[in-house]
Every structure is written in C-alpha cells, then in structure tokens.
Design a binder for these strands. Structure first.
Lengths: 114, 114
DNA sequence: ACTACATTTAACGAGATGGTTAAGCAAGTG
DNA sequence: CACTTGCTTAACCATCTCGTTAAATGTAGT
C-alpha cells in the first residue's frame, strides 16, 4: 500500500513536533553525527536517541550509513520542501502588510488565475 | 509559566500532524465555519471535530467567536509564520543550487519591500 | 575465541491522541 | 415552562509516544 502525500506530510510534521528531534536535525545540519555523538549532546539515553533517529529516518528526514560499528546520520531535507510548500500556501494569511480582506481577495484571484 | 518558543513550535507542528486538522485549516482558509459546517464536511462525529478545533485553538491556529448558539472558527495563520521560518533555515539543504537560494532570498526581499 | 564497544531491540510505565456514544449546557422557539 | 438545537464534556477504548533499564546484536581488536 503506497503512502499518500498526506500521510507523508503527517509523518514529517509529527517528526518535527518533538523538540529533541528538531534539535537533532539542527545538529545534523552542522555535521553528520553518530548515535554516540548525539547521545553526548542531548540529555537522554542512547536508546531514546536511537528511536528518535528511527522516527526521523522513517520520515526520510535523515539517511544513515554504517562504517564499522558506527552509524552516522545525515540530514535529508527534501521532505521539508513539501512541508514548507504546504505552509507557504497560507503566507498571505499571516503577511502583515495585507489585511484580512486583501488576503481573501488574493486567495480568490489566485484560484481564478488557474 | 510562559510557554517557550520551542513549545509553541511543537504545539503547532503536532497540530499540523493530523490530516483532518490540516483539512480543517484549508477549509477555514476559504471561509469561516461553524462546528456543524465542519462536521458536515468531514466523516467524523461532532465531538471529534470539536476536539480538533480545541487543538487548533490551543496552537493559536484558529480563533473562535460565539454568535448565539453558533461558534464560528476563523483561521489565524500567524503561528505558521514561525513554523515556516524554522523550516526555511533548511532550504539550502534541499535547494539544488545556491543560485536558487539567492533567487529565493531576492524574492523574499522583493516581497518584503512591498 | 574472547572481549570491548556501538547500537538496537525488548519490556515496561505514564501520559497523550483520536475516535466513539451518551450525557450536560446554553441559547433560541413554541 | 418545555422543547429543540448547536456544541461541549465525560467516559471509555485502542493505539501511539517518549522516556527508562536490561538484554540482544553486530562489528573490531587481541
């Protein structure tokens, strides 16, 4: 059974919902890291880190490679593109320069143009 | 005790993790809606809708107003700005070329200039 | 083979989630 | 007042989540 786009988005958003996982992604943006590295960085046990990595991998937000006993994690930001794209559609609703009426009109026009 | 920025982000992301809630936000982007409206739109019970709205309200993604017996929900997209800002920091990791990053930054600046 | 080390898996517990049905509340209507 | 209506709350259930500690797995070194 193929994962739907909505499922994928849900998986990504729920992966991002945990502050430790977001911090792990930030860490991996700086440098790849082993499970031990991350365990040293965060105040949780290694099994806890391991499961966070599993969640991130399942969301395709990281990839992992094994070099001997060490498994290093690497950031894979592609799913964030989809998440950003989903959120972007609401930009007009939070942009301060537009009031709510303008936002509504912009939405209508955007829909009509297509 | 003040909610930290990280907590707020977590709340928003976890609110977005549910496909029904994302669909509710999409619905509210088109038009404000009562609980009954949303219950008619989605294949879940009214109490389920009511609780989704509670979650969205707690994440400040909607605001609610009471007019007689009807409680209409309105999209409040401001928290999405923070979510987008968090994700944006990773754009360079998913953008193929730095040129496109530059283009994006230029586009953002152009938008801000308005 | 034995030992050391990095990591995962298993088992557990507290608490959240998302759905249901049934009951309670508040606001208009006969 | 009694009744309906829109919505929320309560109670329940199955499942997931995030942490723990202890055991298992796998790879490297001697």
């Amino acid at each position: 059974m193929p994962a739907t786009a909505a499922d994928q988005l849900s998986t990504v958003f729920s992966a991002l919902a945990d502050p430790t996982r977001r911090a792990i992604l930030a860490e991996l943006a700086d440098h790849n890291a082993t499970v031990s590295d991350l365990t040293a960085t965060f105040p949780i046990s290694m099994p806890a880190v391991s499961r966070h990595l599993k969640v991130l991998e399942h969301a395709s937000l990281i990839s992992r490679s094994q070099q001997g006993r060490w498994r290093t994690s690497q950031l894979e930001a592609a799913p964030l593109r989809d998440a950003a794209a989903w959120i972007e559609r609401y930009r007009r609703y939070w942009d301060a320069s537009l009031d709510r009426l303008d936002a509504h009109l912009a939405a209508i026009q955007a829909a009509d143009r297509r």
